[in-house]
Design a protein around this nucleic acid. Structure first.
Length: 106
DNA sequence: TTTCTAACA
DNA sequence: TGTTAGCA
């Protein structure tokens, strides 16, 4: 009796990789190939099973959802998302971004 | 970006 | 059988 769920072991949050690429893509609202690119770029950190199956955790889904806003609403490329997430990972949320336009397609 | 093939569960 | 992963 500590937190909400009554689990013997300490399960804090969704860190269990149980979502395959198609499920993660649906939850994030992104196409499957995008998740594959994000993984190649090192934007997301999906666990890999013995058969090379990418398993995404709720933690990855949350990051994917942010990527979807940047790519869908803001029109940022994978390269831009990688840069933005890289800044958030390095800086405590203080991004001194001037005015740099990413290569945007119509 | 899209599609095809191969392997796995 | 359906789905995933990798490449051209």
């Amino acid at each position: 009796m500590s937190v909400t769920q009554s689990d013997p072991v300490d399960h804090d949050m969704a860190d269990e990789p149980v979502y395959v690429i198609s499920v993660a893509a649906k939850l994030a609202g992104l196409p499957s190939w995008t998740l594959r690119v994000l993984d190649k770029e090192g934007v997301v950190c999906p666990q890999r099973t013995e058969k090379d199956r990418r398993l995404y955790s709720d933690r990855d889904i949350a990051k994917l959802a942010r990527v979807r806003y940047l790519t869908e609403e803001r029109g940022v490329n994978i390269n831009g998302v990688k840069l933005i997430l890289e800044m958030e990972n390095n800086s405590t949320g203080r991004s001194e971004l001037g005015r740099f336009g990413e290569g945007e397609q119509s």
